Amino acid sequence: MQRSLNPVSRLHQDEVQARILLATTYPFFLAAAVVQRVLPQARSAVAQPRRSVFAEARAMAVSAIPFVFMG
């Protein structure tokens, strides 16, 4: 009789997979963030605080990763 995976082990596996996905997708999102900064955009009248390019790339990558685990 086989034993199912421990829930803690499963959570650890998901965390490791998420870190690997973050590490592999981060360079693409970093390139996208740099391109967004370089391209001229319509500036809004109200100045909004901007994150660094690295923080913006991380935010994009972190927001995209959950879609991989859906379904």
Rank of each mutant, 00 (worst) to 15 (best):
R58H: 12
P49R: 12
Y26K: 12
Q48L: 08
T24W: 05
S4C: 07
I65S: 02
M70N: 05
R19F: 11
A64L: 08
A47L: 15
Q48F: 01
T24C: 12
G71F: 11
S52G: 09
R51D: 02
S9N: 10
M70A: 15
V38K: 15
A59P: 00
P40R: 15
F69V: 03
G71R: 05
V8A: 09
F54S: 13
Q36G: 12
V53K: 04
Q36H: 05
A31G: 08
R3W: 04
Y26S: 01
V62E: 14
Q41T: 04
S9Q: 05
V62G: 04
R50W: 15
A23L: 11
S52E: 03
R19G: 12
V68P: 07
A45M: 06
L5Y: 00
A45I: 07
A59W: 07
D14L: 14
A23E: 11
P49W: 09
I65A: 00
Q48V: 06
M1D: 04
L30H: 14
F54H: 12
L39Q: 10
T24E: 06
Y26Q: 02
A42G: 12
A33L: 06
V38Y: 03
A59S: 14
L11P: 00
A64C: 08
F28R: 06
E15F: 07
L21V: 05
R3F: 07
Q17S: 13
A33T: 01
F28L: 13
Q41A: 07
R10F: 02
R51N: 11
P7I: 01
M60Q: 03
V34T: 11
V8D: 12
T25F: 10
T25R: 10
V16K: 09
A45E: 12
V46T: 06
Q48M: 02
L22Q: 06
R58W: 08
V68W: 03
S9I: 13
I20F: 03
G71N: 07
P40N: 00
S4K: 15
Q13I: 04
A45Y: 03
S4D: 05
A55K: 01
V34S: 00
S63C: 06
N6L: 06
V46H: 02
Q17F: 10
R19Q: 14
E15L: 10
P40H: 05
T25C: 05
D14C: 08
F29R: 11
T24R: 15
D14A: 14
P27N: 14
L5V: 07
R51E: 08
M1W: 02
V38E: 00
A42M: 02
A33S: 09
Q13K: 03
A23V: 01
Q36R: 12
V35Q: 09
A33P: 07
R3D: 11
S4M: 01
Q17K: 13
D14W: 15
D14R: 15
Q41R: 14
A32V: 04
P49V: 05
T24Y: 07
S44V: 05
I20P: 01
V16W: 09
G71H: 03
M1I: 10
Q13Y: 12
A42Y: 00
A55T: 11
M1F: 14
S52A: 00
A59R: 15
A55R: 06
A64S: 13
S4N: 09
A23D: 10
P27I: 05
L22P: 07
L22G: 03
R19K: 13
Q17E: 08
M60G: 08
T25G: 00
P66D: 04
S63E: 07
